[in-house]
Amino acid sequence: MAITLFYHPIFLEHEMGLGHPERPQRLELIISSLHQLQWHDELLWQTPHIILKEDLLRVHHEEYINSVFAASPKEGYYYFDGDTAMNPLTLEAACFAAGSVKDAVKAVMDKQTKRAVCLIRPPGHHAEPDRAMGFCFFNNVAVGAAFALDVYKLDRIAIIDFDVHHGNGTEKMFRDDPRVFYWSSFQHPFYPGVELDKQPSHFHFHPLAAGSGSEAFHDLVDNHLVDALEAFAPQLIFISAGFDAHRKDPLAELFFLQKDYFYVTDKIVKIAERVCEGKVISTLEGGYHLKALSHCFSAHLKAMR
Rank of each mutant, 00 (worst) to 15 (best):
I51R: 01
H246C: 10
P73D: 03
P234I: 13
I268A: 11
R274N: 11
V117I: 10
M16Q: 15
A85W: 01
Y191N: 01
G278R: 11
K279P: 05
L43E: 07
E277A: 14
L208C: 08
K153Y: 12
A148H: 15
S100T: 08
T4F: 11
F256P: 03
H40C: 12
V143I: 13
G17V: 04
P21N: 03
H61G: 12
H61D: 15
P48E: 03
I50K: 06
K106R: 14
T283L: 09
P24F: 06
V164I: 11
C136M: 02
T113R: 15
R26F: 00
A228V: 02
A241D: 09
L37R: 12
L257I: 14
F255C: 09
T4K: 15
L154K: 07
L18F: 15
R26Y: 04
R121C: 02
L52P: 00
V108F: 12
R131Y: 10
D227Y: 04
R274S: 11
A158M: 06
K153F: 12
S100F: 01
F297R: 08
E215Y: 05
L251I: 13
H61K: 13
H218I: 08
R115Y: 14
H188G: 00
D244Y: 02
F238C: 03
F11C: 01
S298C: 12
L196T: 08
K111I: 04
E230Q: 15
D55E: 14
F174S: 04
A127H: 06
V275H: 04
G124N: 05
T170G: 08
L284V: 13
E54R: 15
A245K: 01
F255Q: 13
D83W: 02
T265F: 03
E13S: 14
P9R: 05
S294C: 04
P207I: 11
P122W: 05
D177Y: 09
K302V: 00
E171I: 04
T113F: 06
Q199N: 15
D227P: 00
H289I: 03
P21V: 10
C136T: 02
Y77R: 10
